[in-house]
Nucleic acid binder design. Sequence first.
DNA 1: AAGTTGCATTCACATTTGTTAAGAAATTAA
DNA 2: TTAATTTCTTAACAAATGTGAATGCAACTT
Lengths: 187, 187
Amino acid sequence: MRSFLSAYIDFSDHEYELLISKAKLIEVNKNEQLLFANKAAEKIFFIKSGILRSYRIIEGVDITHHFFLENGFATDYESFLTRKHGDVYLETITDAVLYEFNRSTLFSFFEDFSKFEKIRTVIAENAYLKMVERLKDFQTKDLKERYLNLIDKNSKLFNLVSQKHIASYLGVAPQSLSRIKENVKQI
Amino acid sequence: MRSFLSAYIDFSDHEYELLISKAKLIEVNKNEQLLFANKAAEKIFFIKSGILRSYRIIEGVDITHHFFLENGFATDYESFLTRKHGDVYLETITDAVLYEFNRSTLFSFFEDFSKFEKIRTVIAENAYLKMVERLKDFQTKDLKERYLNLIDKNSKLFNLVSQKHIASYLGVAPQSLSRIKENVKQI
DNA sequence: AAGTTGCATTCACATTTGTTAAGAAATTAA
DNA sequence: TTAATTTCTTAACAAATGTGAATGCAACTT
């Protein structure tokens, strides 16, 4: 987490220790639920190791919203920001080691140490930029291109994440993803 | 702009006048290009009146990225943040009255008056939340639902924006949008 | 070991969307 | 205003994706 943050702001050992003291280091098994829909997200996690997945249940179907990899923050960002009840679940899909922060604790830390406030800006701006990339793909690329693009950027994912979750992430039925994989294999 | 900003932070008359003094008030005709791809976006606009559109040319095709309505900021946000050359054009699609800010002027204003820094965070977070909504639509809704959804939220757009721009915004060919409109009309 | 469960794949068929082309309608320019 | 240009619509066919069902496979349970 230190190296992640220091890419954006400078801080002393002491300040970092203070931040860490606000967090709880937890080890979590695979397939544990970390956040539930219909509750305001009061926690945010920094991922030391492992992979997390956020998803919605829309008309009874599990739709993956996002995969969270090592060295980044994970939460229901929408609910975390708006304090409204979210529609997003967050779960581990591998064993994981996480720093768990309480929303109010973290935000009051930001207020006391205003230079850390910039982290909040940077997280938002990075999250935005990633969303724009995905949106651009949906606007202009067919499934095959989106699939190849995802492999290219996140090859690690494919051994660890089930196909149906990747399919919903890409916005298609699992059968369509199978079809494309077969199609790609032959070339 | 004052009421837009005051929703997020408190500031004095003097502080607001200072901010305004950094901007240039401009009147722009319909179909004027404000930003060009392949240049780093050095300007950001606040829209007093009018509608703007950002778009990319991808494989020779004009793809609308975003519509900007009154009372909000508009730029190639990606390029504006990263300072890299963007792939986005920005143009007016109606006559418009704008406050034009220079990137460096605005950011140094933020540094001098740190409470305004929060504006940057809020803009990023709001932009993110809008992107998430659109992405959710692409993941889970077919064209008809996306179209009805857009009408519902932005009925003003439809009289002022050409169908082909709305089509690319929704990620489909203009012919497909025509088809859906006919389909919807009959019900 | 046998049975259960859930996932990935494959197939057939239905639906949606893309593509090409043509004509109608609207906008712009002269 | 007329002429020229662009946009919108419609149609026919091709391609892609959705849907429901069947199969095989692997992990897990008992």
